[in-house]
Amino acid sequence: MVKTLALLALCATVAVANPIVLVKADLINNSGKTYQLQVDTDNRSCICLKNTQTAKILNRDAADMKLFSTSDCTGNFSQLGKGKTQINAQWVNSVSMGKSGVPSIGPYGCPNYFNR
């Protein structure tokens, strides 16, 4: 019992010491509807947007965000700086954001984020 309590206390301490930090970006469609993407800052995620109508993309706090015309974060990209907005973003079919210098994981599907 004492070992179990000690293990639980240790797990709780680690969880408090290492909280998950998210980076965020907003997708805004032509009618002004907004959907917020959230990605764990310790990883790098590729998110498919080809089925989501995007007029603007606002990079809230991702230090490294790349915009791709492909749906799988490959090929040429445009960098979107932290706090910057990409207008006329209809050409963007995927975004990669999160930790810099590591390969992207995903995408895992390609939903329409405004029809969820």
Rank of each mutant, 00 (worst) to 15 (best):
T34G: 04
Q86R: 10
N18G: 07
K82T: 12
G101R: 12
A89F: 04
S94L: 04
D64L: 11
L7V: 13
N29V: 09
D26T: 06
R60A: 11
L5H: 12
K84G: 04
P111Y: 02
S94I: 06
S78V: 15
G98Y: 03
A9K: 09
Y35I: 08
V102T: 14
G32S: 08
F68W: 04
Q86I: 03
L10H: 08
K33Q: 14
C46W: 00
I28S: 05
V21I: 15
P107V: 05
A89K: 01
G32D: 07
I87A: 09
Q79R: 07
L27A: 04
V39C: 03
M97A: 10
D42T: 15
P111T: 10
N29G: 05
N51M: 11
I57Y: 03
K84L: 13
I87F: 07
G101H: 13
L58D: 08
I28W: 02
N29W: 07
V95M: 06
C110N: 02
V102Y: 05
T74F: 10
C73A: 12
G98A: 04
A17N: 12
M65L: 14
S31F: 09
Q36D: 06
K3N: 13
K99M: 08
I87H: 07
G81A: 15
L58E: 11
N51S: 10
T70S: 12
A89L: 06
G83Q: 09
V95C: 04
A25L: 04
N29F: 04
L10Y: 13
P111H: 05
A12N: 11
G98R: 01
S31T: 13
N76R: 10
R60Y: 09
C73W: 02
D40M: 07
W91K: 09
S100Y: 08
S71M: 05
Q38Y: 12
Y35K: 10
N76K: 08
L49Q: 00
T41M: 10
A17L: 13
I105A: 10
D61K: 04
L80E: 00
K56I: 06
I20V: 14
M65Y: 01
C46R: 01
P19F: 11
K56S: 15
S100H: 10
S96I: 08
N76F: 10
S31C: 08
N93Y: 04
L49I: 00
N43E: 07
R44P: 00
T34A: 13
V16T: 14
D64T: 07
M1W: 11
K84E: 15
F77G: 03
K50Q: 10
I57R: 00
T41R: 06
K33D: 15
N88T: 06
L80A: 05
Q38I: 08
K50C: 12
